[in-house]
Amino acid sequence: MANKRVLITGGAGFLGSHLCDRFISEGFHVIAMDNLLTGSLDNIEHLMPLSRFEYYNNDVSNYVHLSGDLDYILHFASPASPIDYLKMPIQTLKVGALGTHNLLGLALSKNARILVASTSEVYGDPLVHPQNEDYWGNVNPVGPRGVYDEAKRFLESITMAYHTYHKLETRIVRIFNTYGPRMRLNDGRVLPAFIGQALRGEDLTVFGDGSQTRSFCYVDDLVEGIFRLLMSDYPNPVNIGNPDEITIKEFGEEIIKLTGTSQKLIYKDLPVDDPKQRKPNIDRAREILGWEPKYSRAEGLKPTYEFFKKKIKGE
Rank of each mutant, 00 (worst) to 15 (best):
Y148P: 15
T38P: 06
K249E: 12
P192T: 06
V64L: 10
T259Y: 14
G180R: 06
E245M: 09
E202D: 15
L258E: 05
D71Y: 04
V147K: 07
G146S: 12
N3W: 09
L222M: 05
G201T: 14
L258D: 12
K276G: 05
S262W: 10
Y72R: 00
L37E: 11
F176R: 11
E315P: 03
E315Q: 00
H163N: 14
Q277E: 15
R214K: 12
T92D: 04
L289G: 03
R189Y: 13
V238E: 02
L289H: 03
S51Q: 13
F194D: 04
D209L: 06
K257I: 05
L70P: 15
T159V: 09
N132E: 07
A117Q: 05
S40Q: 01
E315G: 02
K264W: 03
K152R: 13
D21T: 01
A80D: 05
M231L: 06
T304I: 09
E299Y: 00
F76Q: 01
Y305I: 11
A298H: 12
I24S: 08
L108W: 06
F207R: 02
S232V: 10
M160T: 13
N138W: 07
E121L: 13
E54Y: 07
Q91Y: 13
H75I: 05
D125K: 08
T261D: 14
N3E: 10
L108G: 09
E287R: 15
E245Q: 11
F23P: 08
R200G: 05
F23W: 11
E299S: 12
A193S: 13
R145Q: 11
M48K: 06
S262L: 13
P275K: 08
G27R: 08
L204H: 02
R153L: 10
H46M: 03
K87H: 02
E121F: 09
F53I: 02
G300S: 06
I312S: 01
L185R: 14
E299D: 08
I90Y: 09
S78H: 02
D233H: 14
H75S: 02
W136Q: 04
D273E: 14
T92C: 10
D71S: 14
N43P: 15
L36R: 14
R174S: 03
L19M: 13
